[in-house]
Simulated scan of single mutants.
Amino acid sequence: MDAAQWDERYRASAGGVWATQPPAVVREITATLPPGTAIDVATGDGRTALWLAERGWDCTGVDFSSAGLALAAARPGGDAVRWTPGDVLEWQPEAQVDLVVSCYLHLPDSAAAVARVAEWVAPGGTLLVLGHDVDNIAAGGHGPSDPAILYTPDLLRGALDDRFRIERCERVVRASGDAELRDGQHAAAIDTLLHAVRVR
Rank of each mutant, 00 (worst) to 15 (best):
residue 94 E to W: 02
residue 121 V to C: 05
residue 93 P to W: 09
residue 97 V to T: 10
residue 103 C to V: 12
residue 100 V to C: 01
residue 108 P to Q: 04
residue 121 V to L: 00
residue 109 D to A: 04
residue 113 A to T: 13
residue 95 A to S: 15
residue 95 A to P: 12
residue 113 A to G: 08
residue 120 W to R: 08
residue 92 Q to E: 15
residue 110 S to F: 02
residue 123 P to W: 13
residue 102 S to V: 05
residue 119 E to F: 02
residue 90 E to V: 14
residue 90 E to G: 05
residue 88 V to M: 08
residue 103 C to N: 08
residue 98 D to N: 11
residue 120 W to I: 11
residue 122 A to P: 10
residue 104 Y to V: 13
residue 91 W to M: 12
residue 106 H to L: 06
residue 92 Q to P: 09
residue 113 A to D: 10
residue 92 Q to C: 13
residue 93 P to D: 12
residue 100 V to L: 01
residue 91 W to Q: 11
residue 91 W to V: 14
residue 105 L to F: 14
residue 124 G to T: 09
residue 122 A to I: 06
residue 105 L to K: 00
residue 125 G to R: 04
residue 98 D to T: 07
residue 88 V to Y: 06
residue 93 P to M: 13
residue 125 G to H: 06
residue 91 W to S: 13
residue 97 V to M: 05
residue 115 A to C: 00
residue 98 D to S: 13
residue 89 L to V: 13
residue 117 V to Q: 15
residue 95 A to C: 12
residue 97 V to L: 05
residue 111 A to E: 11
residue 115 A to E: 00
residue 104 Y to E: 10
residue 121 V to H: 02
residue 118 A to K: 01
residue 119 E to C: 05
residue 121 V to A: 08
residue 110 S to T: 14
residue 100 V to N: 01
residue 114 V to A: 01
residue 102 S to D: 11
residue 119 E to V: 07
residue 102 S to W: 08
residue 88 V to I: 14
residue 122 A to C: 09
residue 106 H to Y: 07
residue 100 V to D: 01
residue 105 L to P: 00
residue 89 L to T: 15
residue 101 V to H: 04
residue 116 R to K: 06
residue 108 P to L: 09
residue 97 V to W: 01
residue 116 R to I: 09
residue 115 A to W: 00
residue 88 V to E: 07
residue 106 H to T: 07
residue 108 P to A: 07
residue 110 S to R: 11
residue 96 Q to N: 10
residue 117 V to Y: 10
residue 99 L to S: 07
residue 99 L to M: 08
residue 120 W to T: 14
residue 100 V to Y: 01
residue 123 P to E: 11
residue 118 A to C: 03
residue 119 E to I: 04
residue 110 S to H: 10
residue 110 S to G: 12
residue 114 V to W: 00
residue 99 L to I: 06
residue 105 L to N: 06
residue 118 A to D: 02
residue 122 A to R: 14
residue 124 G to D: 13
residue 90 E to N: 12
residue 121 V to S: 03
residue 88 V to G: 07
residue 97 V to I: 03
residue 125 G to C: 04
residue 100 V to E: 01
residue 109 D to F: 08
residue 118 A to P: 07
residue 111 A to M: 04
residue 120 W to V: 10
residue 94 E to H: 03
residue 93 P to I: 09
residue 92 Q to K: 12
residue 111 A to Y: 01
residue 105 L to S: 07
residue 91 W to E: 11
residue 125 G to S: 04
residue 103 C to S: 09
residue 101 V to N: 08
residue 109 D to Q: 06
residue 96 Q to D: 13
residue 88 V to Q: 08
residue 112 A to N: 03
residue 109 D to L: 06
residue 98 D to F: 04
residue 99 L to Q: 06
residue 99 L to P: 07
residue 109 D to C: 05
residue 101 V to F: 01
residue 106 H to A: 01
residue 104 Y to Q: 09
residue 111 A to N: 01
residue 105 L to G: 06
residue 93 P to A: 13
residue 94 E to S: 12
residue 107 L to K: 03
residue 114 V to M: 00
residue 123 P to S: 05
residue 103 C to D: 08
residue 92 Q to L: 15
residue 93 P to R: 03
residue 122 A to Q: 13
